[in-house]
Computed example of a mutant assay.
Amino acid sequence: MVKMIRKMAKTVIIYIDIDDDLSLAGIKSPVIGETNVKEAIDKASEIMADDSDFNSMIVAYNIYKKMKKEGQDVEIVFLAGSQKGGLEAQRRISAQLDEIIKELNPQDSIIVYDSPEDAKALPIIQSRLKISGVQRVIVEQHRGVEETYILLGKYFKKILNEPRYSRIFLGVPGAILFAAGILEVLGLISYIVPVITILIGSAMIIRGFDLDEMMEKWWENSTIMVIAALLSSISFAISLINGYFTYISIKGNSVYVVSTVISSMLPYITFSVLILLGAKALSSALDKSIKLFHDIIKISAIIISYYIITDVLKNLEEGIYIIQFQSFYALTISSMVLIFAYIVLNLIEKYKFSSS
């Protein structure tokens, strides 16, 4: 029985489409080989002929044809990421690149791309494969009034259809309009400027630190932790609001004010921490992990600390500035018990790991 072995190419021409516009033309990536690439270009010509991505595909194919005509050992592939962008797009590029290397076993590569976003894939490729050339495609256009409208229409379509654009250009203005309407109904329209500032600032922080992708990954990996994180955030926000209104409503010396404000915030902050630890413990229980006991110890430590701190704050509010022996005794005993339990559980975990 004779097996057909694909010829290994010395150089591979890689066209990068990190935002996966190929999928809009019904093209599934990776696209490997001249025949498949020609089919992909034919499909793209019907849907995205005026797009810079299509021009980049043509440039990559022309480079491949030129090198092949010169007798060089080359192959051509198209790699696509994700319309969500960010880490998900880069990870898909990475996975497809591994597939290409496994199938073609190339020695080096020439990269073709058209946007700065696509350039994010260059370090990923360079970490696995030598890059001997890079070609960025810049399409020059004479933009009259009619062409400008066509271009704006294309970008508006991207905003409507691609999630990574719609979140910013539709989501944020939508949230601002919604908040303005609510404030108008409540007669609080004078607060619209700080509300807009908070919304825009929050959107910039979320997008800048990729918090939306982080939350999405958390949701995929552990729905329990996402729900707990939301409840924890709400509880912490309530603690800040409660502390502020307590501060502006009381009078007295500085020690009394500080202790009273902390006392008003402490239950919500404690709940905020406990719900996160509780969710983690529940996840450990579902995974049947011994680390469940570690989480239980942390929860116990938080609860004990809450009661001891509450007792101390109560004494401060009453003008008692000396820590009573009863509080110190409870703190010492509880600490010793928790430390001993933690040591025992660590020994059990090590014994279980070594025996398995």
Rank of each mutant, 00 (worst) to 15 (best):
G201P: 02
S202I: 11
M204Y: 11
M204F: 10
I205V: 15
I205G: 01
I206G: 00
R207D: 10
F209P: 00
D210L: 05
D212M: 06
E213M: 04
E216H: 04
K217P: 02
K217E: 13
W218I: 03
W219T: 03
E220D: 11
T223L: 11
T223D: 12
T223P: 13
I224Y: 09
M225G: 04
V226Y: 02
I227G: 14
L230M: 12
L231E: 13
S232C: 10
S232A: 14
S233K: 09
S233F: 13
I234Y: 14
F236Q: 12
F236Y: 13
A237D: 07
A237L: 13
S239D: 08
S239P: 11
L240M: 13
L240E: 08
I241L: 15
N242Q: 15
G243D: 01
G243K: 01
F245R: 14
T246Y: 08
Y247F: 15
I248C: 12
I248D: 04
S249N: 14
S249V: 14
I250S: 06
I250F: 03
K251Y: 15
K251T: 11
N253Q: 11
S254D: 12
V255G: 06
Y256M: 14
V257C: 07
V257Q: 10
V258T: 13
T260E: 07
T260H: 05
T260Y: 11
V261C: 13
I262D: 08
I262F: 01
S263P: 09
S264E: 15
P267N: 02
P267R: 02
Y268N: 12
Y268K: 12
T270D: 06
F271I: 15
F271R: 01
S272G: 07
S272D: 06
S272I: 04
V273T: 10
L274G: 05
L274I: 07
L274Q: 01
L274A: 07
I275Y: 04
I275T: 05
L277P: 00
G278R: 03
G278Y: 06
K280F: 08
L282A: 09
L282E: 03
S283W: 01
